[in-house]
Amino acid sequence: MYLYGASGHCKVIIDSIESSTDKIIKGVFDDNIEIDKILNVPIYNFETFDKTKIHEMFISVGNNATRKMISESISENYISVFHPKATISKYAFIDEGSCVMANAVINASAKIGKHCIVNTGAIVEHDCELGDFVHISPNASLAGNVKIGEGTHIGIGAQIIQGITIGKWVTIGAGTVVIRDIPDGSLYVGNPARQIKK
C-alpha cells in the first residue's frame, strides 16, 4: 500500500498501520523533493510514479481541505486505518479513507464520513455524525447525537455538548466549549464558544 503526504500526521499513520496490520507500506507520495524517506519508508513523486503498482492508498495529510482536494483529484482504492488501541463499537460506521488513532473512542451508532481523522484520545459518543473530511483533534469530546458538517476541524481538548449541530468548514478552537448550534464557515473559541471570525 501507499500513503500520500509525508507530514507529521503521516508518521502517526505509519505507526498505526505497522502496529495493527501486516500490510507493507511500499512508499509515500509527496511534492517535497528535499526528503527521500520518512520513518524508513521511501518517498516518491506521484506524477512520475507507475500508477499500476498502487492497489491501496491512504491520504496521510492533516489539513482537511488538502485531503479533499487529493481525494477528488486521485481516484484510488482508499482504505481506513485504525490504531490497535482505539476503541470502536461494532455498531459504528466508518467510511473509506478515515483513521482512528490510539485511545480514541467511537461509540454505538456513530457515523464517520470519508477521509476523517479521529485523533489521539478523542471521544465520539453514540449517534454522532461526522461529515466527510472532518478532523476531531486529540482529547476533544463529542457528547451523544452531535452532528459535524463537512471539513470542520474540532480543536484539541474542545468539548461539544449533546445534540449540537456544527456546520461545514467550521474551526472550533482548542479548549472551546460548544453549547449552541454553530453555522457554516466560522471560527469559534472560548467557554462558552463565541464567534471571532467569519
Rank of each mutant, 00 (worst) to 15 (best):
L130F: 08
N103F: 10
L142S: 09
D36Q: 08
G97C: 03
V146I: 06
F82E: 05
E18D: 14
Y78N: 01
N107V: 06
E47L: 06
C116H: 02
S19R: 14
V100W: 00
H153E: 02
Y4D: 01
H153F: 15
R67E: 01
K114V: 00
D15A: 12
G175S: 12
I123T: 13
F58G: 00
N45Q: 14
F49D: 12
K11T: 15
R67I: 00
G62K: 12
T48A: 10
L187Y: 09
G175M: 12
I54A: 05
H115M: 10
D50K: 11
D95N: 04
K11D: 10
S20I: 10
S186P: 00
I14Q: 09
G62W: 08
I38R: 15
K11Q: 13
N32Q: 02
D50Q: 07
A193D: 03
E18K: 15
A108R: 04
T165G: 05
A158V: 15
G131D: 02
L187E: 00
I156Q: 13
Y78C: 01
H55C: 07
T165R: 07
K147S: 08
Y91V: 12
P192Q: 05
Y44T: 05
K168W: 04
H55W: 10
Y44W: 06
N64V: 13
G190S: 14
P183L: 03
G8K: 07
I94N: 02
R194V: 15
I74H: 15
V28G: 02
I160H: 05
P138T: 14
V178T: 09
N139C: 15
P138G: 11
Y4E: 02
G190R: 09
A92L: 01
N63L: 04
S109K: 11
Q159K: 15
L39G: 00
N32Y: 00
G121R: 00
S75W: 00
G27R: 07
K198F: 11
I112E: 00
N40R: 08
I112P: 00
V177Q: 05
I35S: 10
S75E: 09
K168R: 13
D31L: 10
I13A: 04
G185H: 14
K168G: 01
S141I: 15
S137R: 04
T120A: 07
K168Q: 14
P138Y: 11
Y2A: 06
S71G: 11
D15T: 05
G5T: 14
S89W: 05
N107M: 13
G5N: 04
I160F: 08
K37W: 11
K53G: 05
N45D: 12
I161V: 13
A104L: 05
G113W: 06
I70W: 01
C10E: 03
F49N: 12
A143H: 06
P138I: 15
S20F: 03
I24L: 12
I88V: 14
G167W: 02
L130Q: 01
I156K: 09
Y91L: 13
G131N: 05
D181L: 03
G149N: 04
S73I: 09
L3H: 03
N107Y: 14
P84W: 00
K111S: 13
G8C: 09
V146Q: 09
G151V: 03
K68L: 01
H83W: 03
